[in-house]
Amino acid sequence: MGSLLNFPFLAAVILAGIALYILIFKKNMIKFIMGIALLEASVNLFFVALGYREGGGAPIYTNSPAGIMVLPVPQALVLTSIVIGVSILALMLSMAIRTYRHTGNIDTEKSRRMKG
């Protein structure tokens, strides 16, 4: 069962909670994008914390000290996820800039009447 030892997971949960609050209650498009980036950061933190092993070193054998290693698969997944996050962030920001030029504001409630 859980204990205070699970604190890194709880940190990821706090980040995800802040991100969900932003996504639900904020109307500004830039703040919305910040919320999505924060949610992604929380998922990355959760993955890396999931793969940590007590006292383990980096999973690289070059001149490594003998002993146990942390799990390599979550690190590889997070490495892929970071690059995807950067590109998706760029795409979302471009769409926000484009929307602002079209409609004059970036409020998701007011810019409903976007013209082709």
């Binding site: 069962m1 859980g2 204990s3 030892l5 699970n6 604190f7 890194p8 997971f9 709880l10 990821a12 949960v13 914390a49 999931l50 793969g51 940590y52 092993r53 007590e54 799990l71």
Partner: peptide, 11 residues
Amino acid sequence: SALLVHPFGEP
């Protein structure tokens, strides 16, 4: 769910 996964450090 954060409290119910495996203990931190022993995956």
